[in-house]
């Protein structure tokens, strides 16, 4: 007969679980940390966002813009002589904007905010970063708890506004993928074609669409807010489609996150001339 007493309040990490419950929070912590570090480096790099700027001859025909810099608000000063043609402000950097701010820094708040306030990521990073709780039925480090009932986490209710922006971004990224199917001829004209980068950018739109259109807020706004759904058949259809994507929301969230980083790595490698894109021009 063992003589252990049952603790009323468990200490941090204390549990009777025997499975490797720590694996998922550690995975989430490492993956999100790695993404945050990489994204920050890229945002403040302020260059190598367009494959057509490449030093490699073959890559100069390509037209790939990295999703980290899309929409490209302005061309950075070092590329003013060879503009990508993607910049929204043809006049270049606005005078009021500090020189250290890259065009990516202006727009990344929208996709970052969308993911930060996403219902799936919230649950994942509360566990991985805040240990609230570290995992199901595992002791926590703190006694005090406010949840999302009060400030500051009440702000998570802003999620749907970031979702509206994310939907707009889908159209912009789809346009970039479309541009990625165009290749520049030596005489300056554009021809249809397809390259590895074109496929990378197309898949990026597919994965981000799966993630965005299966978002809980999207699902609610397209039909979930109604009780009698059959009264509006189109909304009901939209809700069912969104629900279908929502059932795999975690998978879409990770696939799209990893792929958007991979797309950026690919375009950067092309832009620096480290990698030569394989493409066929029709």
């Amino acid at each position: 007969m063992s003589q252990m007493t049952l603790p009323v309040k468990r200490s941090w990490g204390e549990t009777q679980r025997r499975d490797a419950w720590w694996k998922t929070p550690v995975f989430v912590f490492l993956m999100l940390s790695a993404f945050l570090v990489y994204a920050n480096i890229r945002v403040f790099e302020g260059d190598n966002y367009y494959s057509g700027h490449s030093t490699a001859e073959a890559n100069r025909a390509t037209n790939y813009l990295t999703p980290f810099y899309s929409p490209l608000m302005f061309e950075v000063e070092s590329r003013a002589a060879t503009p990508s043609g993607h910049a929204w402000l043809s006049s270049g950097r606005p005078g009021w904007l500090p020189a250290w701010l890259s065009p990516a820094a202006l727009i990344l708040i929208f996709p970052a905010g969308f993911r930060f306030t996403c219902y799936y990521y919230r649950g994942a990073y509360y566990k991985a970063f805040w240990q609230d709780p570290p995992s199901c039925a595992v002791g926590e480090p703190r006694n005090e708890y406010r949840g999302e009932h009060r400030w500051p986490l009440l702000i998570q209710n802003i999620h749907r506004y970031f979702m509206y922006c994310a939907v707009v971004f889908l159209f912009i990224l789809a346009l970039d993928a479309w541009h990625g199917l165009h290749f520049r001829k030596p005489d300056g004209s554009w021809r249809w074609g397809i390259g590895v980068g074109s496929i990378v950018l197309l898949l990026n739109v597919v994965f981000l669409s799966g993630y965005t259109l299966g978002c809980h807020s999207f699902r609610h706004l397209v039909g979930g807010h109604r009780n009698a759904m059959s009264e509006q058949a189109f909304k009901h259809k939209l809700w069912k489609c969104s629900t279908c994507l929502n059932e795999k929301h975690m998978a879409w969230a990770w696939t799209s996150l990893i792929w958007v980083a991979f797309s950026d790595v690919y375009v950067r490698l092309c832009a620096t001339g480290t990698w030569t894109d394989f493409h066929i021009v029709f």
Binding site: G123, K127, P133, G147, E148, H149
Partner: peptide, 15 residues
């Protein structure tokens, strides 16, 4: 009823 206290850890769904 404090619906805002739920921080979506999904442990309820798991069990």
């Amino acid at each position: 009823h404090g619906a805002g206290y739920c921080n979506i850890t999904k442990c309820c769904t798991v069990v």
